[in-house]
């Protein structure tokens, strides 16, 4: 049976809309935007001379670390919480999944209203007798943490689902055996539950880490292109504000290289698995 033709439409589509654009991105990145000379390093020189690019690169490398760490702690905490017997469990679960269920742009625009200096958070703080805060001030550490926190809040439900699935798969007898042997709750968690969750934790970190490298909407909506730049928003800025295809493509290529390097551990795991 010559059944392979069934995959042809998909493969052709991916060749045209994935492989070809990526090749085009590389060609654009190595083409001089002004003179059209190819190959040329002019576009890379343009972005290397731009302080905003270097800030974007640094933020792009640091942001996923903080965001994924926050998600992991929150997701694990929630999974442990939902492994307990809870009343109105389905309702509670729906509420916990809600931030991820909302369209990303809806969640981000309302979070901006919450975090701006005259937003709901400042209002609540003033109501409690504290000072208003500006958590989105351009270039501050506070805004870096805000972007990471907001992204973590939105994607924690994914980590939560992965870890909850793994957690309820652990046979109850294992915990009981440890309890019979006199292990405290903390020791049972540290020496029994956590090692058994390891594969799920690694999977969640890889999945979310690679996603977080591509972060675009959260920094753009919360802080604009210059407040807390990442490589994706920097490329968007070069393209839409300066019309510089070459510089935008060059920044995209840098991000793509970072993503490919970061996905090597993932691919290695797939091969050994």
């Amino acid at each position: 049976m010559r059944a392979w033709f069934l995959a042809v439409p998909l493969v052709v589509y991916l060749a045209v809309f994935l492989v070809f654009p990526v090749g085009e991105a590389v060609r654009l990145a190595f083409t001089d935007s002004v003179s059209g000379t190819f190959p040329s390093l002019e576009s890379f020189r343009t972005i290397a001379d731009d302080g905003l690019f270097w800030r974007a690169l640094r933020v792009n490398l640091a942001l996923p670390l903080l965001a994924v760490a926050l998600e992991l702690v929150a997701g694990l905490g929630l999974a442990l919480l939902f492994a307990e017997r809870l009343p109105a469990r389905r309702l509670l679960r729906a509420a916990v999944l809600l931030p991820f269920a909302l369209p990303e742009i809806v969640f981000l625009t309302i979070l901006r209203s919450i975090l701006t200096p005259r937003g709901y958070l400042s209002g609540a703080l003033v109501g409690l007798g504290a000072q208003p805060v500006d958590l989105l001030a351009p270039g501050t550490f506070a805004s870096f943490v805000s972007v990471a926190l907001v992204d973590a809040w939105r994607t924690t439900p994914l980590v939560f689902l992965i870890l909850l699935g793994a957690l309820v798969a652990i046979p109850g007898e294992i915990g009981q055996a440890a309890r019979v042997d006199g292990a405290s709750a903390w020791r049972r968690f540290w020496h029994v539950t956590l090692p058994l969750l390891r594969p799920a934790i690694v999977a969640a970190v890889l999945l979310r880490g690679l996603d977080a490298l591509r972060i675009f909407a959260a920094p753009l909506v919360l802080t604009g292109v210059e407040g807390m730049p990442v490589l994706s928003t920097y490329a968007f800025h070069q393209w839409s504000d300066y019309g510089d295809d070459g510089a935008a493509a060059a920044a995209s290529v840098v991000l793509a290289v970072v993503c490919v390097l970061a996905s090597v551990p993932l691919l290695r795991r797939r091969i050994t698995a």
């Binding site: 654009p21 990526v22 991105a25 591509r214």
Partner: peptide, 13 residues
């Protein structure tokens, strides 16, 4: 897993 921006920019062009 490929970054959206690295496809969106060349695709726009």
């Amino acid at each position: 897993l490929f970054p959206t921006i690295a496809i969106a920019v060349p695709l726009a062009v």
